[in-house]
Amino acid sequence: MPPPWPGAPEDVGGTTLHVRRTPGADGVPAVYVHGLGGSSTNWTDLAALLAPVAWGAALDLPGFGYSEPAPGFDFGLASHADVVVRYLEESPGPVHLLGNSMGGAICLLVAARRPELVRTLTLISPAMPDRRPDPRRLSDPRMAFAYLPLVGAPVRRRLAALGPRERAAQVIKLCFADPARFPDGRLDELAAEHGARAGLAWAAPALARSTFGIFRAWSAVGPASLWAVAPTVSTPTLVVWGNHDRVISVRRAERTARVIPHARLLVLPRTGHVAQMERPNVVARAVLGMWEQVDAGNW
């Protein structure tokens, strides 16, 4: 089990992002974009498995991991996508772009807007509109209320009372089909990251505002809807979903793969919302298979 890959701040068009780099083969790189409440460490195991074929860069989005958001950043999906586009513009040619959850929706927007920057697209349980009134889909249902007037202050106090390991375990319970599969060492790493972020004044507001940014995107209609954006993606795409995903229902999987013109679908049994963490070996084989078929012109 490799430790998290080393990371450092990098300037991305005037925005500073914390980026973890995975050494690997020369050629087309892989760029990894995490989901809501996640960070670049969500890709440690998958990046290690893909490194013999592609060196990697896993981004901490603004307000997540160790990337401090710029003043005035609005945390909408489109704004996150702007940052990823600026990063890819500085990459050596088109990349293999992989995104999970919120990161999947962001990568979808990137591929639609700038297809010349993306060689292949892998979407793992992307945050396609899912309006089920189920607060359990948040890593902590109280987060949606933490920054509302009047009720927000006591909610924030109760959240602050949770220890880092409790928060980490709560996230894994939500995102894994079988939380017992999450190694203790990885839980220690996640708890340490939660503890470090607890001292960052911008961390909790960034999570809350990004949460509402997703909800705003889900309420969009017409050309702004993610369901309208998806058919404009011309990039070869692999859609991966866990059939025990409690965050974004697997019922969105078939439609997502159907509306993206060059997409194929892989649904994994006994798997939750973060398949790249829960079943990295299976996901790696599927991603490598796509890359090989795209290179051969067979996708």
Rank of each mutant, 00 (worst) to 15 (best):
D178M: 01
D178V: 06
P179C: 03
P179F: 06
P179Q: 06
A180V: 12
A180T: 11
R181L: 10
R181N: 01
P183W: 09
P183F: 08
P183A: 11
P183H: 11
D184H: 07
D184P: 06
D184Y: 08
G185Q: 15
G185S: 14
G185M: 09
R186N: 15
R186G: 15
L187S: 11
L187K: 09
D188S: 14
D188T: 15
E189I: 14
E189T: 15
L190R: 15
L190V: 12
A191S: 13
A191C: 11
A192D: 11
A192C: 05
A192R: 14
E193T: 05
E193W: 05
E193L: 10
E193Y: 02
H194N: 12
H194V: 05
H194A: 13
H194S: 09
G195A: 02
A196C: 02
A196R: 14
A196V: 04
R197M: 07
R197Q: 09
R197A: 04
R197Y: 00
R197S: 05
A198G: 09
A198R: 11
G199N: 04
L200S: 09
L200G: 03
L200V: 11
L200E: 13
L200N: 07
A201T: 12
A201Q: 10
W202T: 13
W202Y: 14
W202K: 10
W202I: 11
A203T: 11
A203V: 09
A204F: 04
A204S: 02
P205I: 03
P205H: 01
P205D: 00
A206V: 06
A206T: 07
A206G: 03
L207C: 02
L207Q: 07
R209M: 08
R209F: 08
S210G: 00
S210P: 01
T211A: 01
T211N: 00
T211H: 00
F212V: 05
F212R: 13
F212N: 08
G213L: 08
G213C: 08
I214D: 03
I214Q: 11
